[in-house]
Nucleic acid binder design. Sequence first.
DNA 1: TCAAAAGTGTTCAAGCTACACCCATGC
DNA 2: GCATGGGTGTAGCTTGAACACTTTTGA
Lengths: 218, 218
Amino acid sequence: MIFTLRRLPGSDDVRVALPLVRRTRDPHEGQWALPGGWLDVSESLVAAASRTLSETTGLAPSYLEQLYAFGAVDRSPTRVVSIVYWALLRADDVSTELDSADQRENVQWFDAATLPRLAFDHNEIVDYALWRLRNKVGYSRIAHGLLADEFTLAELREVYEAILGRRLDPANFRRQVENSGTLIPTDRFRTGSHRPARLYRYNQDVELADRGPLGDRD
Amino acid sequence: MIFTLRRLPGSDDVRVALPLVRRTRDPHEGQWALPGGWLDVSESLVAAASRTLSETTGLAPSYLEQLYAFGAVDRSPTRVVSIVYWALLRADDVSTELDSADQRENVQWFDAATLPRLAFDHNEIVDYALWRLRNKVGYSRIAHGLLADEFTLAELREVYEAILGRRLDPANFRRQVENSGTLIPTDRFRTGSHRPARLYRYNQDVELADRGPLGDRD
DNA sequence: TCAAAAGTGTTCAAGCTACACCCATGC
DNA sequence: GCATGGGTGTAGCTTGAACACTTTTGA
């Protein structure tokens, strides 16, 4: 499951988007489904997730984490246990790649809020992943995975707003994120419209204890 | 992975305890390991976890949740992917069963804080599960899974203290848990020493949004 | 000069912490 | 009576929400 942000063409809104693949074989042929693949005998779970991701989008994720193992007996005609991972892609990486994606005609990007009916139990999986994403944005720095190295506070706030689905007070957001100690101000500014905004970087030193003793392994 | 609470014989302290099984075959023969088993072709993941649990302890869990899927290539001589579940048992259920457990000589209960070196990567798995338990006690009502139907606030606080590993202020604990709306006071009291303490039940109606859209399924 | 975003200050309410204090029971 | 845990009250601090306000740019 791959998430990124896209600016809606007609409006100023930023939305969560994800790529789906059209099924070309019989269980649910023609329907859209999450990209997936089989685990190789000598391949770790993350490695398999990473490989599948790259086969679908041609990109390396900026964040990758196990979501859940789905194993109900009736979720597929044949018995399948899916160990689902979710990933974040930076918007600028995606945009440089969109043209080639057009050529993979069986891959298409969708707005996460308005998905069609998907194959298998994939709608439930997406719902759960979106719930995790919304939760996690509050207590970890995954927003970083959706931004370039340097960004303004307004851009960071846009990410939070897209994920949480509601507006945040710019003044309070600034203070909260500044006090968290995870941001380093640079001496560069983003100009172009109105008053220039200071650019920030994420502080790599702060441990987030995001995943507890699991850390970055597995 | 099975958790319960036990009162230390010598002291008044309550500690988190878990059962381990002694390996009787070659990878890590003789070492202690988490109970586990193979997934049947027509068996859901929870069902397999539940079955393994009952085969180990002869008991049904009061709480059962998927922990994580471990799939590093080198975690076992042969390739094994373990989808680990964790469970809670009520202390009183366990104590009625302890005698028969003595007969299963390859099963033994350990204090979670002072475990020996376990087989495979099982120490890491326990660490991660304990971290999840500590986190989760803060925002969900899993403490319920370690208590009888009716309990005093002091007993509930003991559960929190055992899991978190620190003392809590009785006055503040009372207010927090009362204001959470998850407890229903009964008109019964626990007598026997000093002033009788009111017994409480958990309010089954409150949704905890514990696992998000996953709910109790899978 | 004006619109609009960047950035600062202030107030209010809610929640948590520490701790003093009263209440009811067994011994 | 008195020790002890059950239970209540309260002052101080921190955090977050709301919103008024100042600053700096492009047009």
